[in-house]
Each structure stands twice: as C-alpha cells, then as structure tokens.
Design a protein around this nucleic acid. Structure first.
Lengths: 200, 200
DNA sequence: GTCTATAAAAGGATAGAC
DNA sequence: GTCTATCCTTTTATAGAC
C-alpha cells in the first residue's frame, strides 16, 4: 500500500504540475515563466520540482505531449476528421496557457540545436498526417469532391490553424473555429467545381 | 565634418547592429540570443551596444520596424496588393533570422504586460488592413468576383502566411509563396461562383 | 519525495572614465 | 561613442540531508 500510495501521489503531483505550468505560462509567457514560480504554486521548492521534470524543456514537452495524448484519445483515435480538429481548437480557447506555450515554445525550438527541436519536427509531420486523414475522410464521405490536392490542402489547414492561434493570442475576440470552418467550406465548394450538378 | 562624420558613423553602426542581430537570432533563437553576443560580433562590448538600444526589447522592435519600413517603401506604399505581399514572403525566405525573430518575439510579446505587446497588437491591425487593401484591389481589377467577405478573407490570408512561416522554420523545404498563391487562387475561384459565364 | 544549501552561469543594466 | 568595472537579479542545476 505504501508503494501504491506513493506512486499515486507522485502521478497526481505530476498532473498538478502540468496544469499549473499552463497557468504560469498564460500569465508570464513561456520565456518568462520560471520553474520556481511553478514549483511555488504547487507547494514545492524549485529542486522539488526538478525531481519530476529534469529540465525546463522536459517539463514543457511533457505538457504538450499530455495534451496530444488527451486529444488523440478524445478526437482522433483511428481516423482523424475535421470536426475533431475543430473540437480541439474550440477546447484550446479555454486553455490560453496551452496556446501560448505551443506557439512560443515551438518557435523557440525551431532552432536546430534546441532540446525540443526533434519533438516539434516530428509533431509537425504528425499534424500534417492527421490533417490529410481528415481531407481523405471528407473525400470519401462526398463532402469534398474530386478536385483536391491532398497534401496542399492538409498543409494549408494546419498553417491556417497555427496562424489563427497566433492571432488569437493578441486578439481573443477572434473566432478561430468559425474562420477555420469557413476555410473548410470554401475548400469543399472548390473541390466540387466542374462536377455535374446532377449528382444526388 | 566631425559632427556629420560621427552622425554617419552612428547611423551605420545602428544598421550594422540590426543586421547582425538577425544572424545571432538565426543561430540561437530569440530567447537564447544575448546582447553580449550581438555586441561582440559588431566589435562592441555589451554596454557599448546598450548605447544604441536601451534594452533587448527595444533592439528587437527596432529590427522589425526597420523591416516594415523597408517593405512598405518597396512593396506597399499607397495601396497594397497581393503580389507585393508575395514578394515580401519570398524575401523573408532569404532572411531566416527575420522569420525566427518575428515568430518567436511576437509569441513572447502576446503576454499583456510585455514591453512589445502594444507594438505587436498595432502591427497586427496594420497587417490585416494591408491584407484588406489587397483584397479590394483584386475585386476592383476583377480578379476577385463579388462573393467575398473582405474581413474574413483578409484575416485568413494573414493567418495562413503566419502559419506557413512557423512551418517553414521547421521545414525549410516548404514553398510558402506557392502555397499562398494557391490559397489566393482558390479564393479567386470561389469569389466568382454563381456569376454568369457570359461576363467578358 | 521533498527540503536546504549552494553552485555556477548568464543576463540585463548602470556608473563613471576616457 | 565606447570601454572597464561592477552590480544585481534571475535562472537552472546539483549535492546531500531527512
């Protein structure tokens, strides 16, 4: 019981740290958030925090990985689709620290020698792949017609979503979901151009 | 002559600093670029650098403002148009430090209390406005048809460009110009839907 | 698992000489 | 306009006790 209890406690603390890190990032930004501040807010000292995450970069990567795992389980396990994508964006609206962290930390990590560089490179490939799955699903369901360059459309969806999040950080009144939906609908309309109007 | 000479020297040094800052940012990222490193590369000490720019944020804002002034003079003085926008993006491809700085520093500055927060808020409004001018120009020239929501399209163009730059930092093989052109052409096609095919 | 203590480094900024 | 010298602050990270 001691072992199980301690394990449970450790896991719970880990979760707590991940959540509080987002609060701190939302308030100070990723550059100016300190491990000390996060530690204090979860009732630890800074070295106490380091017991869970060996470095600043490890901590932030853990936050983002946890997010991806949740989103995968909830929205795109198996085959991704656009509605799940919108749901994730809508959810992000309620977690500003997550958007701040993603935009800021990924930008920081685009430098080749950064500890999180590989993580973001791979994550980006993954996001493109999921986006492509959504496009294919739309083609199969008939929502999209035949005039679609899968890779191009998939990349543009991802880019637009990233750019909208960047904009949203500066202007929270932007409706990311509505704008993304408009882009998607526009692509759908384009993809049917030239089709016979006779199709059911 | 002394006065004029010193003034010229100071101005030249300023320019040199702005250029070298981009090299350092390209190499270390904006978070890990230090004023000392920039100073050393232009043959100054760190306090020597502070003579020109009182703070880290001032320096980086100066870099971005100089960029905007150049681009304005070269590509969108008076009325902005999409080709000028593409030219700027194409140029950015040759200045990775500029893209890195823009993406990373603007993300950092989206926190409300950041010294550059107001600058980026205003710059973003300005970018949207320029984008809207491009859309209007396309409507007036007939490249775009009547089915256009100006604000929506303008914002989406800006978002896509920002997102593409983010992607490009991680994958330099991405052709930002081609992708943006594809988006633009798609919008053009959509904007003509429902028009009589009789129009010249 | 968490703390105290502390190292070690680096960053930004200032004072004052030249 | 630029340097030397220096300060102060902050940050991450480690060693070792409990």
């Amino acid at each position: 019981m001691t072992r199980r209890g301690q394990y449970a406690k450790g896991a719970a603390k880990r979760e707590e740290i991940l959540a509080v890190a987002l609060d701190v990032v939302a308030e100070f930004g990723c550059r100016n958030a300190s491990n000390r501040e996060i530690a204090n807010r979860v009732g630890l000292t800074q070295p106490g925090l380091m017991h869970y995450f060996g470095s600043r970069e490890e901590l932030y990567m853990a936050v983002l990985k946890a997010r991806d795992e949740r989103d995968t389980a909830a929205h795109w396990d198996g085959n991704a689709n656009f509605q799940g994508f919108l749901d994730v964006i809508a959810h992000n609206t309620r977690v500003p620290g997550l958007v701040q962290l993603y935009v800021e930390f990924s930008a920081e990590a685009s430098i080749g020698k950064h500890p999180a560089h590989e993580y973001f490179t791979e994550r980006y490939q993954w996001a493109r792949e999921l986006s492509k799955q959504s496009v294919r699903a739309a083609q199969e369901s008939g929502e999209f017609g035949p005039n679609v360059d899968e890779d191009l459309v998939a990349d543009i969806i991802v880019a637009t979503a990233d750019g909208l999040q960047q904009q949203w950080l500066l202007d929270r009144s932007i409706d990311m979901v509505a704008r993304l939906q408009a882009v998607w609908d526009g692509i759908a309309a384009l993809s049917h151009l030239g089709e016979s109007p006779v199709s059911s």
